[in-house]
Every structure is written in C-alpha cells, then in structure tokens.
C-alpha cells in the first residue's frame, strides 16, 4: 500500500469513526458515560488491517474532531474520550502484538472496552467526581455494560474485517 492510499484510508476510517461517535452521542443513555463505543469498531478494524499507527491516528483524529462537533473540546469529556480511546487502542494492539492468536477480534474488542472504561472512570474520578464511593459503586456496572457492548462490537468488527479482507485481496 502506498503512502497516499494509507492516508486516504485513515481519512476514510476517521470519517466513519467521527460519524459513529457523533451519532452515538445523540442517543440517550441511562448513565452519563454508558455508551456502546461503536467507534471502537473502527479502531479495531484499523488495527487489524492497517496496523497500530493507523489505528492510533484514527483514534486521535476521531476524538479530536468529535469533541469539536460536540462542543466538549478541551473539557473533561474530551479528555475522558481521548484517554479511553488511547487506552483501548494501545491495549488491543499490545494483545494482538504479544499474543497474536489467543483472542479473536471479539476478545480483543472486549479487552479494548475494558481498558477504555477503566481509564475513563479513572479520569472522571480525577477530574469530575473525586469521591470514591459512587465510582466504586458504578464501575462494575460500567465494566459489565462495556463487556457486553465490547462483545457486540467485536462481532461487528469480525464481519467487517472478514468482508474487507476479501475485498482487499488482490484480484
């Protein structure tokens, strides 16, 4: 793949991720940060197909542009989103890189969701809440929801990756 193609792919994936991220923000949610994290699907796809650098770049672009769209830049919501996104990307990449065949994309997605949420809770604690009790009470709930959402996202990612890999095969 040429440099140009790479840039093009990153831009395309970023656009997808921003769209998904922004639409998701419009959906109502029972707990403030309880979201599906569909944008993570894009990160996962980028990781599998284009590698860590592409995925990391997509994450940075996605969180930055989305926060501009949602008007949260550079507030705590942006930092949470950025921290969560970076944590998910790095953790997923590390697992893929270190133990390549132990997990399928579903497992990787769950791991990503787990670190995404953990870091977000941690940042929220530092910046917003600073009271341990509600954080401790709500984190298992968030991580549980994240695990379920991560599973679903992983399945979706598997679909897309499988289809994309077919398309990308040189004909």
């Amino acid at each position: 793949m040429t440099q140009l193609q790479n840039k093009y792919q990153i831009a395309l994936l970023s656009a997808f991720a921003i769209g998904i991220h922004s639409i998701e923000n419009l959906l109502p949610s029972p707990i403030p940060w309880l979201r599906f994290g569909f944008a993570n699907i894009i990160t996962l796809i980028a990781l599998y197909i284009y590698g860590f650098r592409a995925a990391f770049t997509v994450t940075l672009i996605r969180t930055f542009i989305s926060s501009l769209i949602n008007g949260t830049f550079p507030g705590p919501a942006y930092l949470m989103s950025l921290g969560g996104g970076i944590a998910a990307t790095i953790s997923m990449w590390l697992i893929i890189y270190l133990i390549p065949h132990l997990f399928s994309a579903v497992g990787i997605s769950v791991i990503g969701a787990f670190f995404h949420n953990t870091i977000q809770i941690f940042i929220a604690y530092l910046l917003l809440i600073q009271c341990l009790e509600p954080v401790i009470l709500v984190s298992p709930l968030i991580i549980l929801a994240g695990t379920i959402a991560g599973t679903i996202n992983g399945i979706v990612a598997e679909f897309v990756i499988a289809n994309l890999k077919n398309q990308l095969k040189p004909t």
Partner: peptide, 26 residues
Amino acid sequence: MNLHQIVRNTTKADRILILFLIIFCF
C-alpha cells in the same frame, strides 16, 4: 461469513475472558 461462523471462530480465551468479566462484575 455469518453470525454463526463468527461465534464459532471465537477462541476459548475469548469465551473465558467474557465469562470471567461478567461474573466478576456481577
């Protein structure tokens, strides 16, 4: 590729991880 295939493609580690996280959180 369909859902059935994807579920079958998940590894043992995937399932253990998901199960563990769910039980742990509960």
